[in-house]
Design a protein around this nucleic acid. Structure first.
Length: 589
DNA sequence: GCCGTTTTCGGCCCGACTGTTTTCAGTCG
């Protein structure tokens, strides 16, 4: 059973409790929901955690749920769950996937209309709504009947899912609007909110916050944005516009003196804020977007905060970078003033995944710019090192000699460019395919021409987990292979990536001094942040590269740095913060 | 059912929004 399936099962248990006696089971419901969420977000497969007796490491899984899960893995079912769900109509469960459907609504509809078949429940309900029968039901009306039809239709189109953009794309949209908004003098400060500010890899809507004493002028300026399609909503302090591509931009304006609390609240994450409120409650305080007030004092006014630093300080902790506000331990550290200093873009000294247009007949795509053009771009970014890592020459229709000569000629070109640019040190690398059997695509003779190699999977993605792990480890075991490039192989919104036994890979990388890449390519962002965090915890070295195929793409480094920060990486964990000598020594280790 | 810098017992996040309601229930972020 997959994590997603287990998570859904626990949600169904929670929903079943909710239909019975919500008051009585209130805290069980919350507990099951929490466990379901934690399992959904877990990077380790639960069945593996079960084998390793590590189920209780998952937050929200205590002794009782752990026992239930063990029963699930051993017998395929859980007696207690079956009892809880026994007299709950099965047809309500699929309806819970529809946005705006909770247990109460689903139960009421399924019971009243006596829907029996889970497989057809959604279609059945749609027909009932179209027959105008729902509006008659107590607690429902004409409008809610229409809303149900719309929710079902939108769910089918999967709009909520496919509408998520990759972070770099959302970031670019936001930057343009922020630049435009800053032109108005009523805008004192403007910041992204929500997942955009936390730099999550995929973003739904672009949310922005403005500090201003003149909200109406700010809103007026916002709705006049030249690239808008239409204005969706325009209130005194909030507004929403649609831009081309169907993307929503939401803006909220707040007085400067309470901007800090607003920013904090709408940056989230939800779990981070819940944890903060729980802590505050123990001190008799209540938190919201308006600030902090005393719980007991009903008439107490909110104390507002102009900066987040002051808000966090009032709660007895240091400021926390938005990227790690996910309630994965950051609050506990902030209380001890021990939040790690995360790597920054300005720490980066070089980029080592660069494709030039040098014609070495590669197995995959060539870059668009010359070696020298890429070097000049690196210099403009203030880098002191750069590594060229075109794809290996194609092996299917070229002899070993031809392959060797291609690489040798590329190296000569690098030497020429190096002689013209003394302030940067250039490494001779390649990105080499790991073949199905685990061997590298080119032979040792050709590899001897290189300072080191990035290795990666570009074929046969659907291998079984164990075999894929063996393949990758074998590829990495060659002395020249130092970096595993885009380690999961995922393309966001396109394909999930292959399966690997991550603990084995982390242990191998740590022992043999290999690095995992954080690839900054917008649809890759690979390693993903959650795995970066695990790698960092295992003491594995990482390297942030852009995989640039053109000079301007080297600006994508910021996106890889964002992923690294979300994975709690400090400067020490990132190899390309090193100066030339140290990096050169690491390559030879 | 979970969990621990006021707790191994006694707590458990906050507010907005929507639609159906004359004071609230359900859902969401």
């Amino acid at each position: 059973m997959s994590n997603a399936e287990i998570s859904k099962l626990l949600r169904n248990v929670a929903a079943s409790y909710a239909t019975k006696d919500e008051k009585k089971y209130y805290f069980q419901i919350i507990a099951y929901q929490k466990a379901a969420e934690a399992i959904e977000q877990s990077t380790t497969e639960l069945k593996d955690a079960h084998k390793e007796n590590a189920l209780e490491k998952i937050p929200g899984v205590g002794p009782t749920i752990r026992k239930h899960l063990e029963e699930l893995f051993e017998t395929g079912k859980v007696k207690h769950f079956e009892e809880v769900m026994q007299d709950v109509p099965k047809a309500m469960f699929p309806l819970l996937d529809i946005p705006s459907f909770g247990p109460k609504k689903a139960f009421k509809l399924v019971t009243f209309f006596d829907l029996k078949n889970p497989a057809t429940a959604m279609n059945d309900l749609e027909k009932i709504a179209m027959d105008n029968k729902i509006a008659q039901l107590e607690g429902f009306g004409e409008k809610s009947q229409q809303d149900i039809l719309q929710a079902i239709s939108e769910y089918r189109q999967g709009t909520t899912k496919s509408a998520r953009m990759v972070y770099p794309f959302a970031h670019e949209i936001a930057e343009k609007i922020i630049e435009y908004m800053k032109k108005h003098k009523a805008v004192k400060e403007i910041q992204p909110l929500g997942s955009l500010r936390r730099k999550v890899s995929t973003i739904g809507d672009v949310d922005l916050a403005v500090a201003s004493k003149e909200p109406e002028k700010v809103i007026e300026h916002f709705v006049s944005y030249p690239y808008k399609e239409r204005v969706i909503e325009r209130g005194p302090a909030t507004s929403s516009i649609l831009i081309s591509g169907g993307k929503h931009i939401d803006l909220m304006v707040q007085q400067p003196e309470r901007f800090g609390s607003l920013l904090q609240h709408f940056t989230g994450s939800k779990h981070h804020n819940i944890h903060l409120r729980e802590l505050a409650l123990k001190k008799g305080l209540s938190l919201s977007e308006y600030g902090i007030k005393h719980k007991k004092d009903k008439d107490a006014t909110f104390k507002s905060y102009d900066t987040e630093e002051k808000f966090y300080k009032a709660l007895g902790m240091e400021w926390i970078p938005p990227e790690i506000r996910e309630d994965t331990g950051e609050i506990e550290l902030a209380q001890k003033n021990a939040v790690p200093k995360l790597v920054e873009l300005s720490d980066i000294r070089g980029d080592f995944h660069i494709h030039s247009n040098f014609p070495l007949k590669p197995s995959h795509d060539l870059g668009r710019n010359t070696i020298e053009e890429m070097v000049k771009k690196a210099l403009s970014l203030g880098y002191s090192t750069i590594g060229f890592s075109e794809h290996n020459p194609s092996v299917s229709n070229q002899s070993k000699k031809q392959i060797y000569d291609h690489i040798a000629r590329r190296n000569e070109e690098i030497d020429k460019v190096q002689s013209r640019h003394k302030s940067i040190r250039i490494f001779k690398l390649l990105e080499i395919d790991i073949l199905v059997g685990g061997s590298l695509a080119i032979d040792d003779n050709a590899l001897s021409l290189l300072d080191g190699a990035l290795v990666s999977i570009h074929s046969s993605f659907s291998m079984e987990k164990k075999a894929m792990t063996k393949r990758v480890l074998q590829g990495l075991s060659h002395p020249k292979a130092k970096i595993l490039s885009h380690p999961t192989g995922r393309l966001i919104n396109e394909r999930p990536g292959y399966d690997l036994e991550w603990d084995s890979l982390f242990a191998f990388a740590k022992e043999h001094n290999k690095a995992l890449e954080i690839n900054s390519w917008p649809v890759r962002l690979d390693l993903p942040d959650a795995l970066v965090k695990e790698a960092v915890e295992h003491g594995v070295k990482l390297i942030i590269d852009t995989d640039s195929h053109a000079a301007d793409q080297m600006d994508n480094m910021q996106y890889g740095v964002a992923v690294a920060r979300r994975g709690w990486a400090t400067r020490d964990a990132i190899l390309n913060t090193m100066e030339y000598n140290k990096f050169s020594n690491w390559l030879k280790e």
